[in-house]
Design a protein around this nucleic acid. Structure first.
Length: 492
RNA sequence: CGGGAUGUGGCGUAGUUCGAUUAGCGCACACGGCUGGGGGCCGUGGGGUCGCAGGUUCAAAUCCUGUCAUCCCGACCA
C-alpha cells in the first residue's frame, strides 16, 4: 500500500498536516499563520459547537456577543492578564487608507487617520466583557451572570500549526460573575467537568482532569482547571481550561455589588474556553494511516452510501433502495449521505470516505439487490460484513454505538499504557526520551524546580490530577517532600 | 528574534555543481473511448519564462548582488 499517508514512524507533524489537507478539513491561508477551514472541517466544528452549546444552555448559560476590538486602556486594566498577552497582540492603529501619490494604483495608510487610542484585536475577551459587566451589576439580584460567546480571537503566534495553533482561531469563551467565592469555584469545576464529559462522550477522547501549576495558570486567574489529553505521538495536549478568576477582574474594572446585607463587595468571576484546537485533538487521537477516524457523534454524516452500477437501470434501482433506507435511517436520527457522483469511480470514493473518517460505509450493487443484503464497512476496524436489508437499520444503530465506545476504549488503553510512574530524575529523562507520554512523578511544588525540569527536558507539568494517588513522597528533582504526584509531559 | 533550508504550470518535482536545442516528468485538469465490488486502462489536449529587482554574458532557471516569501529547528503559546 504505497498510497497510504505517511506512516506513523515518519515525521508525525508531516503526517498530521497531510491528513488535515487530504481529508479536506483545512489548509493554510496566504496570510501567515492563518487557516482556512474547509466545509468538511467546519461541519465537524459545527457538530462540536452545537453539542457544547446545548450543554452550556442546559447548565443555565446564555450566548451573547462582544466586540472584536478592545481599547488599549481597557486591555491593560488587569495587569497580569495584559502582561500575559502583550507579546502576541495584533493592534489597529489606523482607520483609513488612501491612494498613494508616489505609487499609482496602490493604497497607503492615511497618516491623518491615526486612532487616538489603539485598538487591540481581542486575544481573549475578559477586558471588554468586564468593562461591560460593570454597568450591568449593581446588586446581588443581578447575579449570577452566566454568559458564553462564540467568537474568533487573534494571538500572533511565532509558529503555527493547523488547528493546534493558528494566529486566528475560533472558540467559545464563558464569562461568569458570581456573588460568592464558592459559587464561582463551583462554576469553574462544573465547567471543567462539562468539558471532560464532552471530550470523553462525544469526542471519544479520554482526558485527565486537574489543576495547573502556578507557572501554567492563566494570566489573571487564581486557579486554572484543565483537561489534558494524550496524542498518538506521546505528546500532551491541553484540551480545555476553566479559570477561577477570584476578584482580580472585578477589582481591575471596579465591579462591585450590594450584597444581601447592603454592603458593597467585589464580584467573583470565572472564565473558560475550548477552541478549534479540539479539532486537532480529535484528529490526533483517532486517526490511522488511512486517514481520519471520526466518532459517530461528531461525524458530519454517519453513513455514506456508495452505489455500484454499470448502467442507468441499475443505478435507478439502487437509488430507489437508498432513498428508502435513508428515510428509515433518518427516522432513527442517523445522518446519511448518498454519494452518487457519476464523476468518481467506486474505489476512489471508498478511499475518500476513509480519509474523511465516515464511520460507516454501505456499498450497494446489483449483487446486493439480488441477495437482498448490503455490504457494511466500519471505519474504525476496517471490517466488512454483509447484512440483510431488513435488519440493516437496527444493525447500523448498534454499530454506531459500538464504534463510539470502541474509539474511546482504544484511546483510553493507549493513554493508560503511556502514563509512567517514575521515582527518580534519570528514569524521568529516559522515559521522556524513549517512550514519551505522561510521566507521573513527585514534585516539590516550587516554580524553581518546574522551570529547571522544563529547561533540561522540555517537559512541563501538565496538571496536578484531581484523582489518583495522593500518597506523599520525595520530589524527583530536588528530593524535597512532595504531597502528591503530578503529571509531566512534552506538550503541544 | 537566533540557527538551517527552499522558491520552476493548480500540486509534487527534474534540470542549477560545470551557463547553450522548443524547460522535462508525475499527479491533477479537459475531451473521447474502454471500464466500474478498493485510488483502473488507452489515446488526445490545454496550461509554466523558472519568487521579485538589478547585474555579468553572444547566451542565464543555472553565475553575482540585493530583496521578498515560505518551510523546518529554537524561544513564546489554547
Amino acid at each position: 500500500m504505497d498510497k497510504k499517508l505517511v506512516s506513523r514512524e515518519e515525521d508525525y507533524s508531516k503526517w498530521y498536516n497531510e491528513l488535515v489537507v487530504k481529508a479536506g478539513l483545512a489548509e493554510n491561508s496566504a496570510v501567515r499563520g492563518c487557516m482556512i477551514i474547509k466545509p468538511y472541517g467546519y461541519a465537524i466544528w459545527e457538530k462540536m459547537q452545537s453539542q457544547l452549546d446545548k450543554m452550556f444552555k442546559e447548565t443555565g448559560h446564555e450566548n451573547a456577543y462582544f466586540p472584536l476590538f478592545v481599547p488599549k486602556s481597557l486591555f491593560e486594566a488587569e495587569e497580569k492578564n495584559a502582561e500575559g498577552f502583550a507579546k502576541e497582540c495584533a493592534i489597529v492603529t489606523h482607520y483609513r487608507l488612501q491612494n498613494d501619490p508616489d505609487n499609482k494604483g496602490k493604497l497607503r495608510v492615511d497618516p491623518k487617520a491615526k486612532l487616538e487610542e489603539e485598538l487591540i484585536i481581542r486575544p481573549t475577551s475578559e477586558a471588554i466583557i468586564w468593562s461591560t459587566y460593570k454597568n450591568w451589576i449593581q446588586s446581588y439580584r443581578d447575579l449570577p451572570i452566566l454568559i458564553n460567546q462564540w467568537a474568533n480571537v487573534v494571538r500572533w503566534e511565532m509558529r503555527t500549526r493547523l488547528f493546534l495553533r493558528t494566529a486566528e482561531f475560533l472558540w467559545q469563551e464563558g464569562h461568569t460573575a458570581h456573588e460568592t467565592e464558592n459559587q464561582a469555584i463551583e462554576e469553574t469545576k462544573m465547567i471543567n467537568n462539562l468539558y471532560a464529559d464532552f471530550a470523553e462522550n462525544f469526542m471519544s477522547m479520554p482526558v485527565i482532569k486537574g489543576v495547573k501549576s502556578k507557572n501554567e495558570t492563566f494570566a489573571g486567574a487564581e486557579k486554572t482547571y484543565c483537561i489534558e489529553a494524550l496524542m498518538q505521538d506521546g505528546k500532551a495536549l491541553q484540551a480545555g481550561t476553566s479559570h477561577f478568576l477570584g476578584q482580580n477582574f472585578a477589582k481591575a474594572f471596579d465591579v462591585k455589588f450590594a450584597d444581601r446585607e447592603g454592603k458593597l463587595n467585589y464580584v467573583w468571576a470565572t472564565s473558560w474556553g475550548v477552541s478549534s484546537r479540539l479539532m486537532g485533538a480529535l484528529i490526533m487521537t483517532h486517526s490511522d494511516d488511512r486517514g481520519l477516524v471520526l466518532p459517530p457523534k461528531l461525524a458530519p454524516y454517519q453513513v455514506v452510501f456508495v452505489p455500484i452500477y454499470k448502467n442507468d437501470e441499475q443505478l435507478d434501482s439502487i437509488s430507489k433502495l437508498v432513498k428508502e433506507l435513508r428515510y428509515r435511517f433518518s427516522e432513527k436520527g442517523i445522518t446519511t449521505k448518498f454519494d452518487n457522483r457519476d464523476t468518481k469511480r467506486p474505489g476512489e470514493k471508498f478511499a475518500q470516505h476513509e480519509i474523511q473518517g465516515v464511520p460507516i460505509r454501505i456499498t450497494i450493487g446489483p449483487k446486493d439487490l439480488e441477495k437482498k443484503s448490503l455490504e457494511i464497512f466500519r471505519r474504525d476496524s476496517l471490517k466488512k460484513e454483509f447484512i440483510e436489508i431488513d435488519k440493516s437499520v437496527d444493525h447500523v444503530i448498534h454499530l454506531l454505538e459500538q464504534i463510539q465506545t470502541n474509539l474511546y476504549s482504544r484511546a483510553l488503553n493507549f493513554r493508560d499504557e503511556n502514563i509512567t510512574e517514575v521515582d527518580n530524575f534519570e528514569d524521568f529523562k529516559n522515559v521522556l526520551e524513549s517512550k514519551g507520554g505522561f510521566i507521573s512523578a513527585h514534585w516539590d511544588g516550587t516554580d524553581e524546580t518546574e522551570n529547571k525540569i522544563k529547561e533540561l527536558t522540555k517537559a512541563t507539568i501538565r496538571c496536578i490530577p484531581e484523582q489518583g494517588e495522593f500518597s506523599s513522597g520525595k520530589c524527583i528533582f530536588s528530593g524535597k517532600p512532595s504531597a502528591q504526584k503530578v503529571l509531566f509531559a512534552k506538550a503541544y
